[in-house]
Design a protein around this nucleic acid. Structure first.
Lengths: 238, 238
DNA sequence: CGCCACGTTGACACAGGTCAAAACAAGTGG
DNA sequence: CCACTTGTTTTGACCTGTGTCAACGTGGCG
């Protein structure tokens, strides 16, 4: 998207001020870069890790996008979260030592990889790292909370509208103010994330478009009228 | 429930081996107890904190139960989580500095209170405390994830069955093996937690009872046939 | 006892699920 | 470059689960 150089090391990384290096003194940075594997390339649909396998690594999204998906024994699937650059994948699996989701690339992407173990040691040396971690986790919980709220709302159109608003906000999280963005996931992905049928997603899209809130072309969405979109998102449950 | 002495200090607390003291040397414990206010009593319906107010404190449930609830501008309400003894309330609010939910007692309860600020200092002194915190957060995320999965499932009866299974597991988290438990929250609370109507909760209860999975008397539920209950929970979406 | 909040049951309507098919997009091979 | 295949998205028609409204217990408390 943005024309960043994507093969830089941590010190030059465009994400540095939002990522772990932001809380480490420049002189100490090598100790961190030492435990990171940067710039791992993945192709669309590549799997980062599988549900149920031993978890020992965190991934930081540098470019592209990912989804974390879990399936029950009965075969029903759910997508917990979509990950954009700057997001950390694998947080929820640290406690149990097993990935509770599978993580899959939604497009050609790049990630950096940090193992839990050396990170724990580094946290002992740099307490700011622990503070950062806790902040990240806390944000993650807050975000999961919002997602929960959204899914529990009844009206399908409201769910999709809220999803779009939140996604739009996240796509601009680095200070840009674009009113258009790309949804790298399929309609089916959106549908199982929101607990709706694909067809309902399609229909909700047309409803939101006909209300004049957005326009779209394929996976590209442009916000035309944010206030009305917010109104749709907050429409009373049915 | 269990006949624990509920006015003990941390060193004697029946939760000590699951709570923060579990990761601090006995000789260092006073430094922690110093920053904790233990054994705060609350009556049923008492509010611990309100959505939107500045967040600077964590609460640990010692006895009783709580819910965290958020309401949107449009008035629709959702309950994010129910809290049982040993659970920590307020985690998701640390990053933003504001409580994103209101926390309310579901019965007469007791909590211990720890302020973020001194906890940060103590974490610098005792890195194990940071490890513990991250484990707690990670579990919290994992649990939020499961809740999300559950709410995204279509069938109402499956949602309630899953809710009951998870609640039952949590009520036995300290090693007991009872097959009965008490739901301290109202049907209405369950309904907005699961994104369903109260009436649907009622009907789902009767469905689960008629399937022979559970019996109940008011708020007391007894599991009669766990395998069938699990089967109900995993029933294909519609 | 009577009041009020809460829970359950019944009747009905409608949002959204399901099934089917068309439109469209993206490859693939000739 | 064009058929052909395969997968995704959209549209249509119909049906069902669950929301809504209403009535009826039931239990706790002044």
């Amino acid at each position: 998207m943005a024309p960043h150089n994507l093969t830089t090391q941590c010190s030059q990384c465009f994400l540095a001020k939002k990522c772990i290096p932001s809380v480490i003194e420049f002189s100490d940075l090598p100790q961190f870069t030492n435990i990171v594997t940067t710039n791992i390339s993945l192709k669309n649909n590549d799997v980062l890790f599988k549900q149920g396998t031993p978890a020992s690594v965190l991934y930081i999204v540098k470019s592209g996008a990912f989804k974390t998906q879990s399936s029950t024994t009965s075969g029903s699937e759910h997508i917990a979260h979509f990950f954009l650059p700057g997001d950390i994948i694998g947080l929820e699996s640290a406690a149990r030592g097993k990935y509770q989701n599978s993580a899959t690339a939604l497009e050609d992407s790049m990630v950096c990889k940090v193992a839990y173990r050396p990170l724990v040691k580094l946290r002992q040396k740099f307490p700011a790292l622990s503070d950062f971690a806790i902040k990240v986790y806390s944000s993650g919980l807050a975000s999961a909370n919002e997602t929960q709220n959204n899914i529990a709302i009844q009206a399908a159109t409201s769910r999709l509208a809220t999803f779009l608003i939140r996604y739009h906000r996240r796509s601009n999280q680095f200070g840009s103010h674009r009113n258009d963005f790309t949804l790298p996931m399929s309609r089916h992905d959106i549908s199982i994330h929101l607990g709706l049928a694909v067809e309902t997603i399609s229909r909700s899209f047309t409803a939101i478009i006909q209300a004049g809130c957005i326009t779209k072309e394929g996976k590209n969405v442009t916000i035309q009228d944010m206030p009305s979109l917010i109104k749709l998102a907050n429409a009373p449950p049915r």
